[in-house]
Protein backbone atom coordinates (compact mmCIF):
# COMPACT_ATOMS: atom_id res chain seq x y z
CA UNK A 1 0.00 0.00 0.00
CA UNK A 2 1.46 3.37 -0.91
CA UNK A 3 1.47 6.27 1.45
CA UNK A 4 -1.47 8.04 -0.15
CA UNK A 5 -3.72 5.03 0.17
CA UNK A 6 -2.65 4.51 3.74
CA UNK A 7 -3.67 8.04 4.57
CA UNK A 8 -7.01 7.58 2.86
CA UNK A 9 -7.68 4.38 4.79
CA UNK A 10 -6.69 6.10 7.99
CA UNK A 11 -9.08 8.93 7.29
CA UNK A 12 -11.92 6.47 6.79
CA UNK A 13 -11.14 4.70 10.05
CA UNK A 14 -10.86 8.00 11.89
CA UNK A 15 -14.14 9.12 10.42
CA UNK A 16 -15.84 5.99 11.73
CA UNK A 17 -14.23 6.31 15.13
CA UNK A 18 -15.74 9.75 15.44
CA UNK A 19 -19.22 8.21 15.55
CA UNK A 20 -20.76 9.66 12.45
CA UNK A 21 -23.71 11.85 13.17
CA UNK A 22 -25.98 13.60 10.77
CA UNK A 23 -25.64 17.30 11.52
CA UNK A 24 -28.46 18.28 9.20
CA UNK A 25 -30.77 15.95 11.08
CA UNK A 26 -29.57 17.44 14.39
CA UNK A 27 -30.31 20.94 13.12
CA UNK A 28 -33.75 19.91 11.90
CA UNK A 29 -34.48 18.31 15.25
CA UNK A 30 -33.40 21.42 17.15
CA UNK A 31 -35.45 23.66 14.89
CA UNK A 32 -38.42 21.64 16.11
CA UNK A 33 -37.24 22.46 19.65
CA UNK A 34 -36.34 18.86 20.44
CA UNK A 35 -33.28 18.19 22.56
CA UNK A 36 -30.31 16.20 21.29
CA UNK A 37 -29.02 13.22 23.20
CA UNK A 38 -26.34 13.93 25.79
CA UNK A 39 -23.75 11.67 24.12
CA UNK A 40 -24.39 13.37 20.81
CA UNK A 41 -23.92 16.80 22.35
CA UNK A 42 -20.59 15.70 23.76
CA UNK A 43 -19.42 14.71 20.28
CA UNK A 44 -20.75 17.92 18.77
CA UNK A 45 -19.04 20.09 21.38
CA UNK A 46 -15.76 18.20 20.90
CA UNK A 47 -15.88 18.67 17.13
CA UNK A 48 -16.87 22.31 17.50
CA UNK A 49 -13.90 22.88 19.79
CA UNK A 50 -11.62 21.57 17.03
CA UNK A 51 -13.12 24.05 14.60
CA UNK A 52 -12.91 26.94 17.05
CA UNK A 53 -9.36 26.09 18.07
CA UNK A 54 -8.17 26.85 14.56
CA UNK A 55 -9.75 30.30 14.55
CA UNK A 56 -7.71 33.38 15.26
CA UNK A 57 -8.70 35.76 18.08
CA UNK A 58 -9.65 38.05 15.23
CA UNK A 59 -11.64 36.32 12.49
CA UNK A 60 -11.88 38.12 9.14
CA UNK A 61 -15.08 37.76 7.13
CA UNK A 62 -16.63 39.45 4.14
CA UNK A 63 -20.02 41.05 3.66
CA UNK A 64 -22.81 40.23 3.24
CA UNK A 65 -23.23 39.14 6.82
CA UNK A 66 -26.06 39.50 9.30
CA UNK A 67 -25.00 40.46 12.81
CA UNK A 68 -26.99 39.29 15.83
CA UNK A 69 -26.63 40.66 19.34
CA UNK A 70 -27.67 39.11 22.65
CA UNK A 71 -30.42 36.49 22.39
CA UNK A 72 -30.62 35.34 25.99
CA UNK A 73 -32.01 31.90 25.36
CA UNK A 74 -35.22 33.18 23.81
CA UNK A 75 -35.52 30.24 21.42
CA UNK A 76 -38.59 31.37 19.52
CA UNK A 77 -37.03 34.75 18.93
CA UNK A 78 -33.96 33.08 17.44
CA UNK A 79 -36.26 31.24 15.04
CA UNK A 80 -37.90 34.59 14.28
CA UNK A 81 -34.46 35.93 13.40
CA UNK A 82 -34.00 33.13 10.87
CA UNK A 83 -37.47 33.81 9.50
CA UNK A 84 -36.80 37.46 8.84
CA UNK A 85 -33.06 37.27 8.14
CA UNK A 86 -32.97 33.97 6.26
CA UNK A 87 -31.67 30.57 7.31
CA UNK A 88 -28.02 29.52 7.29
CA UNK A 89 -26.23 28.90 5.00
CA UNK A 90 -28.21 31.18 2.67
CA UNK A 91 -27.50 34.01 5.06
CA UNK A 92 -24.10 34.40 6.73
CA UNK A 93 -24.40 35.01 10.45
CA UNK A 94 -22.25 36.61 13.07
CA UNK A 95 -23.42 36.17 16.67
CA UNK A 96 -21.93 38.67 19.10
CA UNK A 97 -22.36 36.32 22.04
CA UNK A 98 -24.70 33.41 22.44
CA UNK A 99 -26.12 33.12 25.85
CA UNK A 100 -28.56 33.19 28.39
CA UNK A 101 -29.25 35.25 31.32
CA UNK A 102 -32.66 34.61 32.60
CA UNK A 103 -32.82 35.95 36.09
CA UNK A 104 -35.33 38.52 34.93
CA UNK A 105 -37.78 35.93 33.86
CA UNK A 106 -37.81 34.87 37.44
CA UNK A 107 -37.71 38.08 39.37
CA UNK A 108 -41.13 39.30 38.32
CA UNK A 109 -42.81 36.10 39.36
CA UNK A 110 -40.90 35.48 42.54
CA UNK A 111 -43.88 34.10 44.38
CA UNK A 112 -43.93 30.96 42.30
CA UNK A 113 -40.62 29.67 43.55
CA UNK A 114 -40.02 26.14 42.44
CA UNK A 115 -42.27 26.50 39.43
CA UNK A 116 -40.54 29.09 37.30
CA UNK A 117 -37.83 26.77 36.11
CA UNK A 118 -40.25 24.77 34.05
CA UNK A 119 -41.57 27.62 32.05
CA UNK A 120 -40.35 28.67 28.68
CA UNK A 121 -36.62 28.55 29.24
CA UNK A 122 -34.91 27.11 26.19
CA UNK A 123 -31.26 27.99 26.58
CA UNK A 124 -30.14 24.42 25.99
CA UNK A 125 -32.05 24.24 22.71
CA UNK A 126 -30.82 27.68 21.65
CA UNK A 127 -27.17 27.02 22.37
CA UNK A 128 -27.34 23.50 20.85
CA UNK A 129 -28.74 24.95 17.64
CA UNK A 130 -26.10 27.66 17.37
CA UNK A 131 -23.35 25.15 18.04
CA UNK A 132 -24.62 22.76 15.34
CA UNK A 133 -24.89 25.60 12.86
CA UNK A 134 -21.31 26.63 13.59
CA UNK A 135 -20.08 23.09 13.12
CA UNK A 136 -22.08 22.56 9.94
CA UNK A 137 -21.17 25.90 8.33
CA UNK A 138 -17.94 26.98 10.02
CA UNK A 139 -17.20 29.70 7.46
CA UNK A 140 -20.73 31.06 7.30
CA UNK A 141 -21.59 31.17 10.98
CA UNK A 142 -19.33 33.03 13.42
CA UNK A 143 -19.73 32.93 17.19
CA UNK A 144 -18.00 35.54 19.34
CA UNK A 145 -17.54 35.08 23.07
CA UNK A 146 -19.55 37.33 25.33
CA UNK A 147 -19.31 37.87 29.06
CA UNK A 148 -22.11 35.39 29.67
CA UNK A 149 -20.25 32.52 28.07
CA UNK A 150 -18.55 31.73 31.34
CA UNK A 151 -18.98 29.16 34.06
CA UNK A 152 -19.67 31.66 36.79
CA UNK A 153 -22.40 33.56 34.95
CA UNK A 154 -24.17 30.45 33.63
CA UNK A 155 -24.16 28.94 37.11
CA UNK A 156 -25.91 31.93 38.55
CA UNK A 157 -28.31 32.62 35.73
CA UNK A 158 -30.19 29.42 35.21
CA UNK A 159 -28.32 27.67 32.38
CA UNK A 160 -26.70 25.28 34.82
CA UNK A 161 -30.00 24.35 36.44
CA UNK A 162 -31.72 24.09 33.06
CA UNK A 163 -29.09 21.54 31.94
CA UNK A 164 -29.48 19.55 35.14
CA UNK A 165 -33.24 19.58 34.82
CA UNK A 166 -33.29 18.50 31.19
CA UNK A 167 -30.46 15.93 31.33
CA UNK A 168 -30.45 14.89 34.99
CA UNK A 169 -26.79 15.76 35.32
CA UNK A 170 -24.45 18.67 34.84
CA UNK A 171 -22.48 16.96 32.03
CA UNK A 172 -24.09 18.95 29.24
CA UNK A 173 -23.33 22.17 31.07
CA UNK A 174 -19.71 21.04 31.28
CA UNK A 175 -19.54 20.25 27.53
CA UNK A 176 -20.87 23.67 26.60
CA UNK A 177 -18.88 25.72 29.08
CA UNK A 178 -15.69 23.88 28.09
CA UNK A 179 -16.47 24.74 24.48
CA UNK A 180 -17.00 28.41 25.38
CA UNK A 181 -13.32 28.58 26.31
CA UNK A 182 -12.53 28.18 22.62
CA UNK A 183 -14.80 30.87 21.19
CA UNK A 184 -13.09 33.68 19.33
CA UNK A 185 -13.02 37.20 20.75
CA UNK A 186 -13.65 39.38 17.71
CA UNK A 187 -14.53 39.51 14.03
CA UNK A 188 -13.59 42.07 11.40
CA UNK A 189 -15.93 42.55 8.43
CA UNK A 190 -14.30 43.63 5.13
CA UNK A 191 -11.35 45.09 7.08
CA UNK A 192 -13.69 47.93 8.05
CA UNK A 193 -16.02 46.94 10.88
CA UNK A 194 -14.65 45.71 14.19
CA UNK A 195 -17.11 43.42 16.00
CA UNK A 196 -16.86 42.45 19.65
CA UNK A 197 -19.30 41.62 22.45
CA UNK A 198 -18.54 44.43 24.92
CA UNK A 199 -16.08 46.99 23.66
CA UNK A 200 -12.53 48.31 23.72
CA UNK A 201 -9.74 47.83 26.23
CA UNK A 202 -7.13 50.29 27.50
CA UNK A 203 -4.47 47.66 26.89
CA UNK A 204 -5.41 47.16 23.25
CA UNK A 205 -4.54 49.80 20.67
CA UNK A 206 -4.15 47.67 17.57
CA UNK A 207 -5.88 44.56 16.31
CA UNK A 208 -2.55 42.73 16.46
CA UNK A 209 -2.57 43.01 20.24
CA UNK A 210 -5.82 41.03 20.33
CA UNK A 211 -4.24 38.28 18.26
CA UNK A 212 -1.70 37.48 20.95
CA UNK A 213 -4.14 37.19 23.86
CA UNK A 214 -4.31 33.66 25.30
CA UNK A 215 -8.05 33.18 25.00
CA UNK A 216 -8.40 29.42 25.68
CA UNK A 217 -9.56 29.81 29.25
CA UNK A 218 -12.36 30.99 31.51
CA UNK A 219 -12.91 34.74 31.18
CA UNK A 220 -10.48 36.35 33.62
CA UNK A 221 -11.49 39.09 36.05
CA UNK A 222 -9.33 41.71 34.43
CA UNK A 223 -7.08 42.36 31.48
CA UNK A 224 -7.72 42.74 27.74
CA UNK A 225 -9.86 39.61 27.37
CA UNK A 226 -12.16 40.70 30.20
CA UNK A 227 -12.42 44.20 28.75
CA UNK A 228 -13.40 43.01 25.26
CA UNK A 229 -16.36 41.07 26.63
CA UNK A 230 -17.37 43.47 29.41
CA UNK A 231 -16.77 47.12 28.56
CA UNK A 232 -19.39 49.71 27.60
CA UNK A 233 -19.25 52.98 25.66
CA UNK A 234 -19.93 56.22 27.55
CA UNK A 235 -21.08 59.03 25.25
CA UNK A 236 -20.22 61.67 27.87
CA UNK A 237 -16.57 60.67 28.03
CA UNK A 238 -13.52 61.06 25.86
CA UNK A 239 -11.18 58.52 27.43
CA UNK A 240 -11.33 55.26 29.32
CA UNK A 241 -12.79 55.29 32.83
CA UNK A 242 -13.28 52.60 35.40
CA UNK A 243 -16.92 51.63 35.36
CA UNK A 244 -18.89 53.10 38.28
CA UNK A 245 -19.51 49.53 39.37
CA UNK A 246 -15.79 49.03 39.80
CA UNK A 247 -15.58 46.20 37.28
CA UNK A 248 -14.54 46.76 33.69
CA UNK A 249 -14.17 49.98 31.77
CA UNK A 250 -16.22 52.52 29.94
CA UNK A 251 -14.74 54.16 26.87
CA UNK A 252 -15.46 57.49 25.24
CA UNK A 253 -15.41 59.23 21.87
CA UNK A 254 -11.65 59.85 21.80
CA UNK A 255 -10.90 56.18 22.37
CA UNK A 256 -13.22 55.12 19.56
CA UNK A 257 -11.82 57.57 17.03
CA UNK A 258 -8.24 56.72 17.89
CA UNK A 259 -8.85 52.98 17.65
CA UNK A 260 -10.57 53.30 14.28
CA UNK A 261 -7.87 55.57 12.92
CA UNK A 262 -5.00 53.41 14.11
CA UNK A 263 -6.54 50.27 12.65
CA UNK A 264 -7.85 51.96 9.50
CA UNK A 265 -11.42 50.96 10.16
CA UNK A 266 -14.70 52.82 9.99
CA UNK A 267 -16.99 51.29 12.59
CA UNK A 268 -17.27 49.38 15.87
CA UNK A 269 -20.15 46.98 16.35
CA UNK A 270 -21.03 45.46 19.71
CA UNK A 271 -23.90 44.02 21.76
CA UNK A 272 -24.14 43.82 25.56
CA UNK A 273 -26.58 46.67 26.26
CA UNK A 274 -30.35 46.64 26.23
CA UNK A 275 -32.10 49.44 24.36
CA UNK A 276 -35.80 50.00 23.79
CA UNK A 277 -35.35 50.58 20.05
CA UNK A 278 -33.34 47.39 19.47
CA UNK A 279 -30.21 49.26 18.40
CA UNK A 280 -28.41 52.50 19.06
CA UNK A 281 -25.64 54.51 17.47
CA UNK A 282 -23.06 56.64 19.23
CA UNK A 283 -20.02 58.78 18.50
CA UNK A 284 -21.22 60.21 15.14
CA UNK A 285 -22.39 56.75 14.13
CA UNK A 286 -18.94 55.26 14.53
CA UNK A 287 -20.22 52.73 17.03
CA UNK A 288 -23.44 50.72 17.05
CA UNK A 289 -25.06 48.52 19.65
CA UNK A 290 -27.25 45.73 18.34
CA UNK A 291 -29.70 44.01 20.70
CA UNK A 292 -31.53 40.91 19.49
CA UNK A 293 -33.74 39.81 22.41
CA UNK A 294 -37.19 41.37 21.87
CA UNK A 295 -39.35 41.89 24.95
CA UNK A 296 -36.30 41.01 27.04
CA UNK A 297 -37.11 38.76 29.97
CA UNK A 298 -40.58 38.58 28.51
CA UNK A 299 -41.58 41.89 30.04
CA UNK A 300 -39.41 44.81 28.90
CA UNK A 301 -41.53 45.46 25.82
CA UNK A 302 -38.44 46.45 23.83
CA UNK A 303 -37.85 45.97 20.11
CA UNK A 304 -34.91 43.97 18.82
CA UNK A 305 -32.83 44.11 15.68
CA UNK A 306 -30.35 42.31 13.52
CA UNK A 307 -27.88 44.29 11.49
CA UNK A 308 -27.54 43.40 7.84
CA UNK A 309 -24.13 44.45 6.56
CA UNK A 310 -24.01 44.53 2.78
CA UNK A 311 -21.13 44.69 0.32
CA UNK A 312 -19.72 48.21 0.17
CA UNK A 313 -20.35 48.77 3.87
CA UNK A 314 -24.09 49.34 3.77
CA UNK A 315 -25.74 48.75 7.15
CA UNK A 316 -29.44 48.07 7.71
CA UNK A 317 -30.96 47.45 11.14
CA UNK A 318 -33.78 44.99 10.57
CA UNK A 319 -36.03 45.66 13.56
CA UNK A 320 -38.39 42.99 14.85
CA UNK A 321 -40.68 42.20 17.74
CA UNK A 322 -41.20 39.13 19.89
CA UNK A 323 -42.21 35.95 18.06
CA UNK A 324 -45.89 35.00 18.40
CA UNK A 325 -45.02 31.52 19.78
CA UNK A 326 -43.84 33.09 23.02
CA UNK A 327 -47.44 33.73 23.92
CA UNK A 328 -48.29 30.06 23.88
CA UNK A 329 -45.13 28.54 25.22
CA UNK A 330 -43.14 30.99 27.25
CA UNK A 331 -42.94 32.82 30.53
CA UNK A 332 -44.43 35.76 28.67
CA UNK A 333 -47.77 34.07 28.91
CA UNK A 334 -47.45 34.07 32.63
CA UNK A 335 -46.15 37.62 32.77
CA UNK A 336 -49.08 38.84 30.73
CA UNK A 337 -51.50 37.06 32.96
CA UNK A 338 -49.98 38.75 35.92
CA UNK A 339 -50.05 42.16 34.33
CA UNK A 340 -53.68 41.86 33.45
CA UNK A 341 -54.62 40.44 36.79
CA UNK A 342 -55.74 36.98 35.69
CA UNK A 343 -53.22 35.20 37.85
CA UNK A 344 -53.28 37.10 41.11
CA UNK A 345 -51.14 36.04 44.00
CA UNK A 346 -51.71 36.24 47.74
CA UNK A 347 -48.37 37.94 48.41
CA UNK A 348 -47.75 39.14 51.96
Amino acid sequence: MNKQMMNQALRVIKGRAMAPFDLDACIAQLLRKQLLHEALLREICEKTKEVLMRESNVVHVNAPVTVVGDIHGQFYDLIEIFRIGGYAPNTNYLFLGMVFKQSRVISGIDFRAGDYVDRGLFSVETISLLTCLKLRYPDRVQLIRGNHESRAVTQTYGFYSECVRKYNSSHVWTYFTDMFDFLTLSVVIDNQIFCVHGGLSPSIHSIDQIKVVDRFREIPHEGPMADLVWSDPDPEKEDFAISPRGAGYTFGAGVVHKFLQQNQMSHILRAHQLCMEGYSSLFDKHLSTVWSAPNYCYRCGNSASILEVGPGGSMYFNVFEAAPENEKDGPQQQAQQNASGRLPEYFL
Binding site: S107, G108, N147, R245, G248, R299, G341, L343, P344
Partner: peptide
Protein backbone atom coordinates in the same frame (compact mmCIF):
# COMPACT_ATOMS: atom_id res chain seq x y z
CA UNK B 1 -58.90 39.28 44.72
CA UNK B 2 -60.84 41.99 42.88
CA UNK B 3 -57.83 43.78 41.42
CA UNK B 4 -54.23 42.71 41.08
CA UNK B 5 -51.18 44.27 39.46
CA UNK B 6 -47.44 43.87 39.34
CA UNK B 7 -45.55 46.97 38.39
CA UNK B 8 -41.78 46.82 37.89
CA UNK B 9 -40.21 50.27 38.30
CA UNK B 10 -36.58 49.49 37.57
CA UNK B 11 -34.10 46.64 37.33
CA UNK B 12 -30.37 46.51 36.78
CA UNK B 13 -27.90 43.66 36.78
CA UNK B 14 -25.00 45.78 38.01
CA UNK B 15 -22.89 44.72 35.03
CA UNK B 16 -23.52 41.12 35.96
CA UNK B 17 -22.11 41.70 39.41
CA UNK B 18 -25.53 41.09 40.90
CA UNK B 19 -28.97 42.52 40.60
CA UNK B 20 -31.00 45.47 41.81
CA UNK B 21 -34.75 45.65 41.31
Amino acid sequence: ILFYAEIPLFEDELHDNGSSA
